[in-house]
């Protein structure tokens, strides 16, 4: 049973790795806009001048892993993809916490949707597939038999369900305006903000019911509310979906962050350099 699943997982892993590598290289080659790379995936975690190199390195590693899965018959080599995907899962988790506005960049600039649980779930699923392949010690593409085919179909369906990129293709097919170009009245974002957990957490400290400033940038709408102690609470509401991502932060009168939101990351604030 396990060996059947592993045999189905192997071609999925190889194709996913190769596709990811090709898409990343294509993105680097195209570079649609200045600084676009610096807003994709792990590249945001490093200085911008290394963003391109990081993207290329990531693509090359993916090609190497795909090749390793196909040809190298060594137990250590078997486990390398698992390690890669496990690290990727952690990086995506961290990315979501640190930079909720950037995409995972898994398939280059196609993956520009902010990292969500689906992207992380996909990386975790790939880790599990990698572990199965490693445990079973498979090498090279297996014969596709009647037993394996349904498992391949199931694996692909799982990955597709976990891929936010699919939404983009569907929207494109339906000719929907992308969210950053779609007009959206501020009232709707405000009512979505008021229905969110971040709002409930901060509502007690707000001094006014109406925002003192609000503005829109791409798919985010920002609201600033005056709060107790001469501070301000800043909310960022994503404009995609009915239950969108909402971030909140309390900023003191001096412009320094007082308390980040509920998914607290005090350690991040300590490590982020604050210009004097």
């Amino acid at each position: 049973m396990l060996s059947t699943i592993a045999a189905a997982a192997l071609p999925i892993l190889v194709v996913t790795l190769a596709l990811g590598g090709v898409a990343k290289l294509a993105t680097v080659g195209r570079e649609a806009s200045p600084g676009a790379l610096a807003r994709l995936g792990p590249a945001v975690l490093m200085p911008e001048r290394f963003a391109k190199a990081a993207m290329i390195a990531c693509a090359l590693v993916e090609f190497a892993l795909a090749a390793v899965l196909l040809v190298v018959d060594h137990p250590v080599a078997r486990w390398l993809p698992t390690v890669f995907f496990a690290v990727a899962t952690y990086v995506l988790w961290d990315l979501r916490r640190r930079r909720p506005d950037v995409g995972c960049g898994c398939f280059g600039d196609v993956s520009d949707t902010p990292v969500g649980l689906r992207s992380i779930g996909r990386a975790a699923a790939l880790t599990a597939m990698g572990a199965l392949v490693g445990a079973e010690g498979l090498t090279g593409l297996p014969q596709v038999t009647v037993e394996i085919a349904p498992w391949i179909g199931g694996g692909v369906a799982l990955l597709l369900a976990c891929s936010p990129e699919v939404d983009g293709f569907v929207s494109r097919l339906r000719h929907r305006t992308p969210c950053e170009q779609r007009p959206m009245p501020p009232g709707r974002a405000l009512s979505r903000l008021r229905a969110s957990a971040a709002w409930r957490a901060q509502a007690g400290s707000l001094l006014a019911d109406e925002p003192s400033d609000m503005w829109r940038e791409l798919c985010w709408r920002f609201f600033v509310f005056p709060a107790q102690g001469d501070a301000e609470v800043v909310f960022a509401v994503h404009l995609r979906g009915r239950r969108p991502a909402v971030r909140a932060v309390v900023v003191g009168a001096d412009g320094q962050v007082v308390a980040p939101d509920g998914r607290g990351d005090a350690s991040l604030r300590e490590s982020t350099p604050v210009s004097a």
Partner: peptide, 16 residues
């Protein structure tokens, strides 16, 4: 404020 709430670096990115 936008940089604070989204965890961005408020400084402009360096030139490539």
């Amino acid at each position: 404020l936008a940089a604070a709430v989204l965890g961005r670096d408020p400084r402009p990115a360096p030139r490539s």
